[in-house]
Design a protein around this nucleic acid. Structure first.
Length: 511
RNA sequence: GGCCCGUUCGUCUAUCGGUUAGGACAAAAGAUUUUCAUUCUUUAAAGAGGGGUUCGAUUCCCCUACGGGCUACCA
């Protein structure tokens, strides 16, 4: 059956979206575009106790920053299947739960939390798997054990109830995962999952299956943590009689911690020194900040590129891909099966590649902002900023490093790299600097070439070797030992500033 | 504990029974750059272990080990 490709990213707004989730969204996006289909965003906020204010907005903003745009759903203009927020779809789920009760695939259960606990304790004590299943449900308070009158009495009385799925006994459930191939589970290992909660909300399982069906989802691409509940979902499609409309499943490998143990979690980021969130997040309750890629100086294109390669590869040697190129190259059967550890070095390398490709105009605003922070924006022209960006760009890996590497273009050094000074400052130096100052003053045109000519002249006059002095000259002008070509720096900051810095050095540096 | 998924250089991975097991990041060495960064060259680095199947297994099957996930009226 050939049907229109429709996929969804369905996060729950319980906090900031972490990069594993971003990657899931990305793969969904790539798959949809590859097949000319639709990519939609649905918010799964059925657990009202875990709702976190701002989380939904955060998710949308993150995806927009990365350019992972949905064609339909929350944050991207509703489509024909609105609403796309499950809390707003609440009224429709009950009918589906009732439908399952009517056809014998589900039942009411009235057990209290205490009764469930005592059942589990009892079974655990006798070393049996404690679950609400084909064996134990006969001992519990539900519409299978209670008389019809009693059930009706309780329902009319408004007693709290849940709807549980009546799992078939000892049945092998098989399905073909697009990434893992045939996967099979036996229902005797599963339990009668709650589908409809006592607060009138569906659980993930019901809402997910119902919405995927109603929204005509063709492929469910989600994290591997959902693999164990996939058979339940398959059974639900069957129980509803929707098997011919059941989406294909693709369970993605998990993103693992770099140190090795466990999946990457929300708390790992700042502890390990790299972000696990796309953008900064401030916890609304604790006010604790979790840093994001955006603020850490990553470029969205780099994040997309590096995330795409965590668990997928094109099978060629090409590593740098735009989003459009990824769409062209992407396929589910090149997604790997095993979890990938996040590699900070590789991430840095990807970013560096994109920083270099960045136009000076795109980098200048970052520099401008840094300048604003120290209050000296006015005195520098846009053209000057662009030239600084062009000179410094290849030295940095992250956009927010630009200030650190370029501040001497704007502020005369107050400190000098003393290692260089101690090594290179000799008795001849003051005289040499004096000659340089004299010569610079005579220059009517202060360019890279004229500066270098003056420099060579002064060296010759004082019988100093270039390699003995140049780095000291650099430190005198910039304060630091490394950087772009020195004569270009001098020409850019200009004659007056260069002279100032030479004179400063003469009076400041005492050996 | 039970169930499920996985396992190639330190890391991400290529290989769809026959390869000197390839690439990238990181590491090391050298060259270039008057510095730093870049760039270039080079080096080191892997099939978890054990059984099968086969003329031949990294590749297919089984067992073990290890890693991961799930095991809620959370998603």
């Amino acid at each position: 059956m050939d049907r229109r490709v429709r996929v969804r990213f369905a996060p729950s707004p319980t906090g900031p979206l972490h990069i594993g989730g971003v990657r899931t969204a990305l793969y969904n996006y790539l798959f949809a575009h590859k097949h000319g289909g639709d990519f939609l965003i649905r918010i799964e906020d059925t657990d009202q106790t875990r709702f976190v204010p701002g989380a939904e907005e955060y998710i949308i903003e993150s995806l927009k920053w990365l350019g992972i745009e949905a064609s339909e759903g929350i944050g991207f203009g509703n489509g024909k299947h609105a609403p796309y927020r499950q809390s707003e779809r609440k009224p429709m789920y009950k009918d589906f739960a009732m439908q399952l009760i009517a056809n014998g695939h589900a039942y009411y259960a009235f057990d209290t939390a205490e009764e469930l606990d005592s059942m589990r304790d009892r079974l655990k004590a006798s070393n049996v798997d404690a679950k609400y299943d084909a064996i134990t449900r006969g001992t519990m308070k539900n519409s299978l054990t209670l008389s019809e009158d009693e059930v009706n009495r309780r329902l009319e009385n408004g007693d709290a109830y849940v709807v549980r799925f009546k799992l078939p006994r000892k049945e092998e459930v098989k399905f073909e995962d697009e990434i893992r191939g045939w996967v099979s589970f036996n229902t005797n290992q599963m339990d009668d999952k709650v589908l409809y909660k006592s607060d009138g909300m569906p659980t993930y399982h019901l809402a997910n299956v119902v919405d995927d069906y109603l929204m005509e989802i063709s492929h469910v691409i989600r994290g591997e943590e959902w693999l164990p509940s996939a058979p339940l979902h398959v059974l639900l499609y069957r129980a509803f009689g929707w098997e011919n409309m059941m989406p294909k499943f693709a369970h993605l490998p998990l993103l693992l911690k770099p140190e090795g143990n466990g999946k990457l979690s929300k708390r790992d980021g700042d502890r390990l020194g790299f972000p696990v969130f796309p953008i900064n997040w401030i916890d609304p309750i604790t006010q604790e900040l979790s840093s994001g890629y955006r603020e850490a100086g990553y470029l969205p294109k780099a994040v997309v590129n590096l995330l795409a390669f965590l668990g997928w590869n094109p099978g060629t040697q090409q590593e740098l891909f735009s989003l459009e190129e990824l769409v062209q190259a992407f396929s589910l059967d090149r997604v790997s099966k095993s979890g990938a550890k996040f590699d900070q070095n590789k991430a840095k390398w990807f970013n560096q590649q994109y920083v270099r490709q960045l136009a000076d105009e795109a980098l200048a605003p970052v520099l401008f902002e840094a300048l604003g922070n120290i209050g000296t924006t006015d005195q520098f022209s846009h053209d000057f900023l662009l030239k600084v960006c062009s000179l410094v760009k290849e030295k940095i890996s992250f956009t927010n490093e630009i200030w650190e590497y370029s501040k001497y273009f704007f502020i005369a050094p107050i400190e000098y790299d003393m290692q260089v000074v101690n090594k290179r400052w000799t008795d001849k130096t003051p005289k040499l600097l004096g000659d340089l100052i004299e010569d610079f003053e005579q220059l009517s045109s202060f360019t890279q070439e004229t500066v270098e000519a003056s420099y060579q002249k002064a060296l010759a006059k004082n019988e100093v070797q270039g390699k003995d002095f140049l780095q000291l000259f650099r430190v005198i002008l910039t304060g630091v030992a490394g950087g772009p070509p020195l004569f270009e720096i001098a020409a850019l900051i200009g004659k007056t500033e260069s002279l100032n810095r030479l004179r400063n050095a003469l009076s400041n540096i005492t050996k």
